[in-house]
Each structure stands twice: as C-alpha cells, then as structure tokens.
C-alpha cells in the first residue's frame, strides 16, 4: 500500500490508527442489521476483508476536522421540488407484473409475526 501514498513531493503524513479487527460476532451483527444470511465461510472471509478495509479507511481519523462542516451532497439544500399536483402513476397491474408472488392485486408475503 505504501507505494500508493503520495511521494516525497507531498507534505501529507499519516498516523494510521488501526482499529481492532472485527470479531465474528460483529460480522454477524452487521449481517443481521443488513438482512443478509451468510454462511460460516462467508462470515470468516468478510471478517478478514472488512477488517482490512476498515484499517485502511481509519486513516481519516487522523485528519483534523473540528471546524469543518459535513458535506452530505454537493448542492445540498438546493433540491427542486415539483409542484404537488396529482398525476397518474403506473397502473397497478404493471407494477405487480414483476412480483414473485401476488394475490388480489397486492404483493404477497409470508407472515410478519411468528
């Protein structure tokens, strides 16, 4: 990775604070939040890969941003809403066409509560 850092021509210096590698329990918690079912092999692999990526991105924490406002979007607060006038949407049948399961003009899902 060091070859990708700026050369001597740059004045940047990093102090990389390596976070602790993720535990399997943390990987399971993230997967649960993201509604992803993972196999044991996947958990082990993502644990290793995500830990390496997090270690890399952690160098941001060395940047002094105390007085810097966040940028959520380049032209934030400048969205242009159209007039709130009713207009026809797509017909129900069109929108249901791609559903894996439907009944009585509605999307069908298994029970929400066990």
């Amino acid at each position: 990775m060091s070859s990708r850092k700026p050369s001597g021509r740059s004045t940047l210096h990093y102090v990389i604070i390596a976070p602790m590698p993720l535990t399997i329990q943390e990987v399971e918690q993230i997967a649960k939040l993201a509604r992803l079912e993972l196999t044991g092999e996947e958990k082990a692999r993502y644990r290793e890969q995500l830990s390496a990526i997090l270690e890399h991105v952690a160098k941001l924490q060395t940047l002094d941003t105390d007085k810097i406002p966040p940028t959520a979007s380049i032209f934030s607060g400048d969205s242009h809403l159209r007039r709130d006038e009713p207009r026809l949407g797509l017909p129900r049948e069109e929108l249901l066409k791609n559903a894996p399961e439907q009944e009585k003009g509605q999307f069908k899902i298994p029970p929400v509560f066990e």
Binding site: P70, T71, A72
Partner: peptide
Amino acid sequence: AFYGQAQKARTLIK
C-alpha cells in the same frame, strides 16, 4: 468516527 468524519473530509476535498 466513520461516516461523519468522511462527510467532513469530503468538504476539504470539495
């Protein structure tokens, strides 16, 4: 530490 800091660093890049 992660998302918030990235948004601030984005300001510096901009």
